[in-house]
């Protein structure tokens, strides 16, 4: 089992009486790109958020890099620093410039020197194509630029895995491509990624495995060609018939 980077074992979560995660079992290998799709309310965002314990679970175990997720405290903060997270609404720190957004974690969490953190931040911003926006505030950037900055911020912690919670769902259509392009590049570089998305194109060409969720259950998983070509469950077929035209 040592090979898996992320392991969920019989995970359950309730929001009140709503069973948002129902007996979820999932193992993600190092370097694997897993795309999670499914209708809204199926629990896919929650699945993403329980992995760095932004949402605590009610039953089951989650292991990251061989260790069970710690409860609140310094150990949890350390684990989170090793898992990058990208949110639907970007969540860039509104009062900090783009480059300060990217360096905050390395400086405060990793105790890196300002110069070192800044140098890597500029390299990352260059990689996501917004180095020229480094000294602006988030509100001065387009949605696509903000999301690319948020990816750079997560990468600055040199994480072992990246979680993407619907990273393109809040973007204007013309900006979706630039964000997916950055994500595709990351996947090609061997980053371990869990991506919750409605972008079927990305799932097809960048994922190693597609997971289909419905009603809090992990209904079906398969390589993309197999999943899109020949979905086994009725629910997946129904879903695909609605999203693929």
């Amino acid at each position: 089992m040592a090979g898996h980077l992320i392991e969920l074992d019989s995970v359950h979560k309730w929001f009140g009486s709503l069973h948002v995660l129902s007996d979820v079992n999932l193992a993600v290998d190092r370097g694997e790109v897993v795309v999670v799709i499914g209708p809204s309310g199926s629990g896919k965002s929650t699945l993403c958020r329980v992995i760095n314990r932004l949402e605590p679970i009610d039953a089951g175990t989650i292991r990251f890099d061989g260790r069970v997720l710690p409860a609140e405290g310094r150990a949890l903060a350390k684990l989170r620093s090793e898992v990058g997270m990208v949110f639907q609404s970007f969540n860039l720190f509104a009062h900090l410039t783009i480059v300060d957004n990217v360096t905050l974690g390395p400086i405060k969490v990793r105790r890196e020197s300002r110069a070192e953190a800044r140098e890597r931040a500029m390299r990352l911003l260059d990689r996501v194509g917004i180095a020229d926006q480094a000294d602006k505030l988030p509100a001065q950037l387009s949605g696509g630029q903000q999301q690319r900055a948020a990816i750079a911020r997560a990468l600055a912690m040199q994480p072992k895995a990246m979680l993407f919670d619907e990273p393109t769902s809040a973007l204007d259509p013309e900006m979706v491509g630039e964000v997916l392009e950055v994500m595709t590049g990351l996947a090609a570089d061997g980053m371990t990624m869990i991506v919750v998305t409605h972008e079927m194109g990305f799932a097809r060409h960048a994922a190693h495995r597609v997971i289909f969720m419905a009603d809090g259950e992990l209904v079906e998983q398969a390589p993309p060609a197999e999943f899109f070509g020949n979905p086994r469950s009725a629910r997946a077929r129904d879903f695909l018939s609605k999203v693929l035209h």
Partner: peptide, 30 residues
């Protein structure tokens, strides 16, 4: 302060006090 701000700070590994000091309170002050 929108909840996402503190969430993003937590996801980077900032502790509760760091989160307050560097992310939440500067924005709450306004």
């Amino acid at each position: 302060v929108p909840a996402g701000q503190a969430e993003a700070a937590r996801s980077l590994g900032l502790t509760f006090t760091q989160n307050l000091r560097y992310v939440v309170l500067p924005q709450a002050g306004k």
